[in-house]
């Protein structure tokens, strides 16, 4: 009876009485349960807000097709709301061209910057470059627009002897805006690669450039792709800076330096002039829906890319 095991048993039996929660523990448990509900409700609320935005914009947008056929909306180039013509093709077309062009401008610079900051710059320079890059992201877009309007547009106008408005200045401004985003995400992707890849390559007699180009960049490709997609999303959704330099004529662009309109600026320009419920107003909602759907798709692609790279 006096063995160690028996004593242990006694102890736990007497201990069991103490398992009744004290007043303090009771309060803690209640707080725990309450917090749980607070978090669940918050999460549900966020989801509900996003969901209702999609539903509201979607319902308003779909009503457009009562006044215009889908075929006309998506493929006609005639946007004359006063005459009941709602062809949004020029806006879609310009949006796609502008987005791609700005990525084409931004990507080489951003990648070069990312490689430099991640692999070549000495430490003290990196300490300066990284916060500087972050600072870029925080500049309000209207400031970029202002610079585009007062520097880039007149410059292009002078060179080509025209107004200087159009996709080209907008793409330049957007490239500057999305470059820091692409740069810092790509840089993270490159820096997070294990050092052994670099060592392995150098130990085989590769130069630094061969190592970067043939080993590090391919290995960082999923991260770089994510960066590009985020940059594209930002370029596509940007309104103010584009509005100030693109010219805003509702027509197909004849060249990169002729006035045109993209989805975002079409909404900004016309929203104040329309009555709620009119076909014109609904068409703008439909454009908003398109933007929403495209950015959701981009996010989806990021997720797929991220998951693929995890599997490896």
């Amino acid at each position: 009876m006096n063995s160690y095991v028996d004593k242990l048993d006694e102890k736990s039996a007497s201990g069991r009485a103490a398992w009744k929660p004290s007043r303090w523990m009771n309060m803690q448990n209640k707080a725990d349960a309450t917090m749980r509900y607070v978090f669940i409700i918050s999460a549900a609320l966020v989801a509900a807000v996003i969901f209702s935005i999609i539903v509201f914009v979607g319902m308003q947008g779909v009503k457009t097709f009562a006044g215009v056929s889908p075929w006309e909306f998506f493929f006609s180039t005639d946007w004359t709301p006063s005459a009941g013509k709602f062809g949004a093709f020029p806006f879609l077309f310009s949006t796609v061209v502008l987005t791609l062009l700005s990525v084409v401008f931004a990507l080489p610079l951003a990648l070069a910057g990312a490689i430099f900051t991640a692999k070549i710059a000495p430490n003290w320079m990196r300490e300066i470059l990284r916060p500087a890059t972050d600072l870029f992201v925080g500049i309000p877009s209207v400031v970029y627009g202002l610079i585009g309007l007062t520097v880039i547009v007149p410059f292009i106008g002078k060179v080509v002897k025209g107004t200087g408005y159009g996709i080209l200045p907008a793409a330049i401004i957007l490239a500057i805006m999305i470059m820091p985003t692409i740069l810092s995400i790509s840089e993270d992707a490159i820096r997070s690669l294990p050092g052994r890849l670099e060592e392995a390559s150098l130990a085989l007699g590769a130069t630094r450039w061969q190592t970067i180009w043939k080993v590090l960049l391919p290995a960082a490709r999923p991260g770089i792709l994510t960066a590009v997609i985020l940059g594209m999303g930002r370029a596509m959704g940007e309104t103010m800076a584009v509005f100030m330099v693109i010219g805003n004529s509702p027509q197909m662009p004849k060249s990169l330096i002729s006035s045109t309109t993209v989805l975002t600026t079409a909404i900004v320009k016309d929203m104040g002039n329309t009555n709620y419920g009119s076909t014109w107003n609904n068409a703008l909602f439909l454009m908003a829906l398109l933007l929403l759907v495209i950015s959701l798709l981009l996010i989806l692609i990021i997720r797929v890319v991220a998951r693929r790279s995890e599997l490896k």
């Binding site: 294990p194 052994r196 890849l197 060592e199 392995a200 390559s201 150098l202 130990a203 085989l204 007699g205 590769a206 130069t207 061969q210 043939k214 080993v215 391919p218 290995a219 490896k312």
Partner: peptide, 30 residues
């Protein structure tokens, strides 16, 4: 050229994230 003549195998295996063929062909290619 020194590292080409004096090569190194590391503590942890460090293959490149590419195919087996491309891993071996990497050195000759560069």
């Amino acid at each position: 050229s020194l590292r080409k003549r004096v090569g190194m195998v590391f503590q942890r295996p460090n293959p490149f994230p590419m195919s087996i063929y491309d891993n071996i062909a990497y050195g000759p290619r560069i």
